[in-house]
Simulated scan of single mutants.
Amino acid sequence: MSSASNTASTATDIAVATAALGKNRACSEVTGNADKHQCRKVLVLVNPLASKRRQRLLHELIQQLDGRNIFYSYFETLPQVEQTIVAVASLARECNEAIVLGGDGTLHQAVNALIEYRMPIGYIPCGTGNDFARYWFADDMPQSDAAWVAQALDTETQVIDVGQAGSRYFINVAGVGFDGELVKRMNNRKFFWPKLSYLLAALQAISSYQAIPFNLSKSQQKVVALGARSGFLFTLANSQFFGAGMHIAPHARLNDGRLAYCFVEKCNWFARFSILKRVGQGTHSDLAKVHCGQLNAVQVTTENLPVQADGEYIGTTPMIFRSIPAAILLRGRRNL
Rank of each mutant, 00 (worst) to 15 (best):
I62H: 03
V111K: 02
G102Q: 11
E94G: 01
Y117E: 12
N69R: 11
A110N: 12
I99W: 09
L101S: 11
Q64I: 07
L107D: 06
L57R: 08
R93H: 15
I85F: 02
L57A: 09
A98I: 07
Q109C: 10
I115M: 06
Q63S: 05
V86P: 00
L107H: 01
I62R: 02
D66T: 13
Q109P: 06
I124E: 11
L78Q: 12
R53V: 13
S73Q: 10
I99D: 07
R118S: 14
N96Q: 08
L57E: 14
A98E: 04
H59L: 05
L61R: 00
L65F: 00
S73D: 09
A98R: 08
Y123G: 04
G122E: 03
I62S: 07
D104A: 06
L78M: 09
I121N: 04
S90V: 14
Q83Y: 09
Y72H: 15
G105T: 06
Q83H: 11
P125A: 01
G122V: 01
L91Q: 15
M119N: 02
A89Q: 10
E116N: 09
E76L: 03
G67L: 00
L78V: 05
N69G: 14
H59E: 12
Q80H: 14
L91S: 13
G122N: 03
R56Y: 13
E94A: 14
S90W: 03
Q64T: 13
Y72L: 07
E97M: 08
M119G: 00
N112C: 05
L107N: 03
R53W: 03
F71Y: 04
S73I: 07
G122Y: 04
A89L: 00
I62C: 07
Y74N: 01
A113D: 01
S73F: 09
R68I: 02
R53G: 04
E60I: 03
Q63P: 00
L78T: 05
L78E: 14
D66P: 07
I124D: 11
H108K: 08
L58R: 08
E82M: 08
Q80S: 14
P125V: 01
Q63R: 11
T106D: 13
N96G: 11
F75I: 12
I62V: 15
Q55T: 14
I115S: 08
V86H: 10
E116L: 02
G102M: 11
L58D: 13
H59A: 04
S90D: 15
E76M: 04
A92F: 09
E116I: 01
A113P: 04
L61N: 02
T106A: 06
V86F: 08
H108V: 10
L58P: 06
Y72T: 08
R68V: 01
V81P: 00
T106V: 07
L57P: 13
A89I: 00
P120F: 05
S73A: 15
I85T: 06
V100K: 06
T84D: 12
A89E: 12
P120V: 02
N69V: 07
Q64H: 12
I62F: 01
I70K: 02
I99Q: 05
Q64F: 09
A87E: 13
L114K: 09
G67V: 00
E76N: 13
L78R: 03
S73P: 08
I124S: 06
I99E: 05
A110K: 09
R68L: 12
E97R: 05
Q80Y: 13
